[in-house]
Structure formats: structure tokens, C-alpha cells
Design a protein around this nucleic acid. Structure first.
Length: 595
DNA sequence: TGTCAGACTTGGAATAATATTA
DNA sequence: TAATATTATTCCAAGTCTGACA
């Protein structure tokens, strides 16, 4: 295994010398990809596989042969017959009406259930199904509690199943799914990602989404387009009497099936291969490679935008300042959004009220970004940037764009001139790589594997913070903290007791106790006590660390950066250098994705 | 040059599976 | 052995970016 790029992140003059750069990563690392194991021949025999590593990337061709079994539909609705109350009276509902009522009822203990937009949207769509003449006309008179309680008892029943029963139903399910879990891409068995069609439900938009609560209708075969190899057998439509909307043979795309999102008909939902597939792995590798390449260009890019901070050309000036912010703060590009979506922004769509100038040269950012997660940060910037932002905002009304001469297309077109393939999001990957590499190199010491893994986790955390990956405080956080505090208290008492005992022993040599522990205490030698003492001390320190770590990470979401931002090559190189096992170690299961 | 559909990556939450502790 | 904590997986929403077309 060769060390790739280790320690190189800080050196701007890094040169690429890897002669095998174009090989798949797994091949370069000499590890057999799980995905490259051929599946059962009976399924793939009809398809000739092409040699791998063939430079197929000339055109936009993604595959030569593609075989799969289509999608799995959710089971039809099974009515429970539990009657909800309207104005205190039980009401009869048709299965279709009951289905939607149940969707709402089971969301009782979520935030959505108390949001006005959610309730209004749900009620409007539900009334369409109830019909004009239905007795139910006012939401306030609806009582969904009986259905909610039925739902709770169903959940409880499921929980009470014996482990054998659970196992049996699990196995049955995986047997049913097996057929759909795999696809053959150029003869290679690959895992399919989301082969299940999304079930009907109430739309759970994030933030203040104007469509939250709308009924997401059931998807039928006639909604679905199948994409499959020309010679491959077309998957049988699993619902009798119905048929696919369309069957395509488009090898310039990687999706296996798609349908229009019922909430936003112009959006398309796709069935793709899983992240472990070589198609995904390949593009992942290209992403990290691009970020690494940016390292060679960053100096000139910075020089370029710095020069334009004072440009007379307003558009140039805005591009310069926007690029600076994306580089320095890892902001997202910020496409324009529709009226019927949550009101969020990125760099290009920042509004004047999202930035406050704090003299002499600080900027305070406060806006809702992707998923309506708040970005709140005060940063010192170059004076020229500060002055430019002040100028861009001057005279604009609330809601006006800071960068009015700019959009993501123009910005990316400019970035492409500076480096081939460069777009705004590459800066986020780049920032992540630099941060990971720097922290790993600076902070790793000759300690235990556990200590080294802590350094990795800290680097992971820093990347998450840079990318503003935040999560809601876990529901059980407070109770868990209380428990840890109690544990520390208990241990402290134990420690004090042992300490007292030790000093008494030292004085008297022999202790005559009066309580029930006396006999046991008498048997303790000072050496044993001393040992116990240090054990308790260690446990206190460990528990305290655990507690602080938990508190520290309560609003930090580590998952996304682990999966999408930490270059596995940096991780592998570090593991090798510091003798941290890659396999089996739970800290690095993320690597399964690529190896 | 702008708009829009399309295809793909990125994102947190919910849920399931597994490990740990009481 | 059950309750709880941790980790992995699934789910599906919400971004980014490209390319076709007017």
C-alpha cells in the first residue's frame, strides 16, 4: 500500500507523480472490491462483460450492459377499522379516507402535528378524498386519538415479538428483496441503492416548507420509467393488470428507474446503484481527485480574486468577493429557489439582511442554508472585502441580493476558466481534505489506537463544523448527561471512601469497622486499596471525558462529512503510517464504501 | 443569455441492528 | 435478560451542476 498525498496538503507546490492515477482506487490499493465479485452466473450469463479499466469515459457512456429486476412497491393499504372521533362521535371512513387519516394520526408526537401549514395542507388534501358532502368539515372537531393509540399498540406488539419471530420476519423480507437488491452492470454484480418505491405519506418538508403536510400520493407502475440494457429482459410489472410508463435503454445515465415526485411534478425521483458500486465509487474518486488538484491552483486563484476586490467592473468584483467567501467559509453556491420551497440561501443568493458589517472589518453571517439549517458566524475579512460587501448592500431593500450581478452559472463558468472542472462545491471538499490532513498530521501521537482514533474523530468534528453540519440535540441527551453526572458522583464517593480507608490503615495498620463491610475492609491490604483507588480515578476521568465529548458533539452531525467529505486516501495513508487497523475498526467502516 | 428539465451528490432524521450496561 | 447506548442503514428531502433549447 502506498501512501497517497499524506502530509502534502499544506504544500502548495505539490506535484502529481502517481503513474497509476487513472486506475480505480481499489486496484491502486491492491484491495479486491466487494462489488467486483461476480454474481451467480445464471443471472449474468446472458450478458457479456467488458474488460474493466477500459477508458470508456470518452463520451458520456456509463455502461454497455445493464440488467436488473425493477423496483419493489409498498404493499397495498390494509384498513384497521379503528374509528376516529368527529365532534365526539365515531365516524365511518372508507379505506382510502382512513389511510390518510392514519398518516396524520401517527405523526401526533412530531413537530409537524402542531404546525399550521402542515395541518392546513393535510386537511385540504384529506377533504378532497372525503368529498364535499362528508360530515367532517372542521379540523378542530377531529380527534385522531383512537387511531394514534391503535398505532402505539401495534408498535408495542412489534416490540414484544420474540427474537426468533423478529429474525424470521427479517429473513422473509430479505428473501423477498434479494431479487431486487442487485443489478448487473457490464456483467458485474452491483448493489442497488433505493429499489423500494416511496410509499404514500404526508410530505415532510424541512424548515418552513410551504408544501409540508400535502398528501404524497401512491406511485403506480404507470408512473415509473425503467432504464435497462437493450438485450436485458424487461422486469415484470409486479402489479397484475398494470404496466410500466416507459422502458428506456439510455446508457448515458446511471439510474435504473425513475418517476415524477408527486409533490413537485417537475422533480424526478431516481433509483440508483448503492454507494458501494463501482460507478459511484468512480465518481467519488474523481471528486476527491478534483479537490486535490485544486491544491495546485489555489494560490493563483487567490491571487486572481484578490486582484479583483477593487475592480471597476461590478460583476468581476462580485465574482471575486463571492469566490473569497466560498473559499474562506466553505459556503455552498446558492442556486435560486422557487416560491413554493423553503426560503433558504447560499452564497450567490445571500440577501442584504443575512450579512451585517461590523467595523472595522468583520462580517456577521446569519441565514438559513440547506435543509433550513442556520449558518451563524462572525468572521474577520480582508478590508477590501469588507468595503465591497458594504458597497454591494448599500441602498438595497430587505430581500435584495447582495450579489445582484451573479448567479451560480456565472460563478461556475468563471471558476472553470481558472481550473478545468472547478465548481463552487469543490472548495468544500478541498477545505475538508486540508483540515483532515492537517489535524491528523499535527495531533497524532505515539499513543494507543484508541487515542489515535480520538484524533481522527476530532478531525471529523472540525470538518463537520466547517461544513456547518448540524443536528438537533438528541432527545435522550439530557437524561444521558444526568446519568453520567450521577455516575461520576457515585465514583467520587467511592474514591473518597477508599481514600479515607487508606489513610486510616496507614495510621492504625488495623481497622476495626462497625458496619457490615468491616470484614471485607479488614481483608484489604494497602496495596489492594491503592490499586482500587487508581482504578476508580481512571474511571472518573474516562466518564468525564465521555460526558464532555457528548456535550461537545450534541449539535454536530458527523455522518455527512464522514461519508461525503473525508478523502479515504488520506485516511488510509494515516492508518498505514500510524499503524491503525483499517479493517474491522468500527471508526473507519466508511471505507467499506470504496474497498 | 436566460430558463428549465434532468441527473446526480449531499443532508439530517428515523429506524434497525448491535453492543454494552444494569 | 432486559434496558439502554451506540452504530449502521434506510429514507427521502434538498441541494449542485450540466446541457438543451428558445
Amino acid at each position: 500500500l502506498k501512501i497517497i498525498n499524506a502530509g502534502g496538503a499544506k504544500a502548495d507546490g505539490h506535484r502529481h507523480q502517481d503513474s497509476d492515477d487513472e486506475k480505480p482506487l481499489a486496484a491502486r490499493l491492491g484491495i479486491n472490491s466487494a462489488a467486483s465479485k461476480t454474481g451467480d452466473a445464471s443471472d449474468s450469463s446472458s450478458v457479456e462483460s467488458e474488460p474493466k479499466d477500459e477508458p470508456e469515459h470518452d463520451g458520456r457512456k456509463k455502461w454497455s450492459t445493464l440488467v436488473h429486476n425493477g423496483v419493489v412497491f409498498p404493499p397495498p393499504y390494509k384498513p384497521h377499522g379503528v374509528k376516529m372521533l368527529y365532534n365526539g362521535q365515531p365516524v365511518d371512513l372508507t379505506p382510502e379516507q382512513e389511510e390518510v387519516a392514519t398518516m396524520f394520526a401517527v405523526m401526533k408526537d412530531t413537530e409537524y402535528a402542531s404546525k399550521e401549514t402542515f395541518i392546513n395542507n393535510f386537511f385540504t388534501d384529506w377533504r378532497k378524498i372525503l368529498g364535499k358532502t362528508h360530515v367532517i368539515t372542521k379540523f378542530e372537531l377531529c380527534d385522531f386519538t383512537p387511531i394514534y393509540e391503535w398505532h402505539l399498540s401495534e408498535k408495542e406488539k412489534k416490540k414484544q415479538m420474540t427474537s426468533e419471530e423478529k429474525k424470521a420476519s427479517r429473513e422473509e423480507k430479505s428473501q423477498q428483496d434479494e431479487k431486487f437488491m442487485w443489478a448487473f452492470v457490464d456483467g458485474v454484480k452491483e448493489k442497488v441503492g433505493n429499489f423500494r418505491v416511496e410509499p404514500p405519506g404526508l410530505f415532510r418538508g424541512r424548515g418552513e416548507h410551504p408544501k409540508m403536510g400535502r398528501l404524497k400520493r401512491r406511485i403506480r407502475p404507470s408512473d415509473i420509467t425503467i432504464n435497462i440494457g437493450e438485450e436485458a429482459p424487461v422486469p415484470v410489472c409486479p402489479i397484475p393488470g398494470e404496466s410500466w410508463k416507459e422502458v428506456k435503454h439510455d446508457n448515458t445515465v446511471t439510474w435504473l428507474a425513475c418517476w415524477n415526485d408527486p409533490i413537485n411534478e417537475k422533480d424526478i425521483k431516481y433509483v440508483f446503484l448503492a454507494a458501494s458500486s463501482s460507478l459511484k465509487g468512480q465518481s467519488d474518486k474523481e471528486k476527491y481527485e478534483k479537490a486535490r488538484k485544486l491544491k495546485d491552483y489555489i494560490r493563483s486563484i487567490r491571487a486572481n480574486y484578490t486582484k479583483d476586490f477593487r475592480s471597476k467592473d461590478q460583476r468581476k468584483k462580485q465574482i471575486a468577493v463571492a469566490t473569497y467567501l466560498i473559499d474562506k467559509l466553505a459556503l455552498r453556491a446558492g442556486d435560486e429557489k422557487d416560491e413554493d420551497e423553503a426560503d433558504t440561501v447560499g452564497c450567490c443568493t445571500l440577501k442584504v439582511e443575512n450579512v451585517t458589517c461590523l467595523p472595522p472589518n468583520k462580517l456577521q453571517f446569519d441565514f438559513l442554508g440547506k435543509d433550513s439549517i442556520r449558518y451563524y458566524n462572525t468572521v474577520e475579512v480582508e478590508l477590501a472585502v469588507y468595503e465591497a460587501i458594504k458597497e454591494f448592500c448599500a441602498g438595497k431593500k430587505k430581500g435584495g441580493h447582495v450579489f445582484d450581478k451573479l448567479d451560480t452559472t456565472k460563478l461556475n463558468a468563471h471558476l472553470k476558466d481558472l481550473m478545468p472542472g472547478l465548481t463552487a462545491k469543490v472548495f468544500r471538499t478541498y477545505d475538508a481534505s486540508i483540515t483532515l490532513d492537517t489535524i491528523l498530521n499535527k495531533e497524532t501521537t505515539d499513543g494507543t489506537v484508541d487515542e489515535k482514533a480520538k484524533v481522527y474523530q476530532r478531525a471529523n468534528k472540525e470538518v463537520a463544523i466547517i461544513c456547518n453540519h448540524q443536528r438537533a440535540v438528541p432527545k435522550s441527551h439530557d437524561s444521558q448527561m444526568n446519568k453520567l453526572n450521577e455516575k461520576i458522583d457515585e465514583l467520587t464517593v467511592e474514591l473518597e471512601k477508599a481514600n479515607k480507608l487508606l489513610s486510616k490503615k496507614a495510621k492504625k495498620r488495623k481497622l476495626v469497622g462497625s458496619d457490615g463491610d468491616a470484614k471485607r475492609r479488614r481483608k484489604l491490604t494497602p496495596e489492594m486499596l491503592q490499586k482500587k483507588l487508581s482504578q476508580v480515578e481512571t474511571r472518573i476521568v474516562e466518564t468525564d471525558n465521555h460526558k464532555n465529548n457528548k456535550e461537545d458533539l450534541k449539535t454536530v452531525a458527523l455522518g455527512t462529512s464522514k461519508i461525503n467529505y473525508l478523502d479515504p486516501r488520506i485516511t488510509v495513508a494515516w492508518c498505514k503510517t500510524h499503524e491503525v487497523p483499517i479493517d474491522r475498526d468500527k471508526h473507519f467502516t466508511v471505507l467499506n464504501k470504496l474497498f
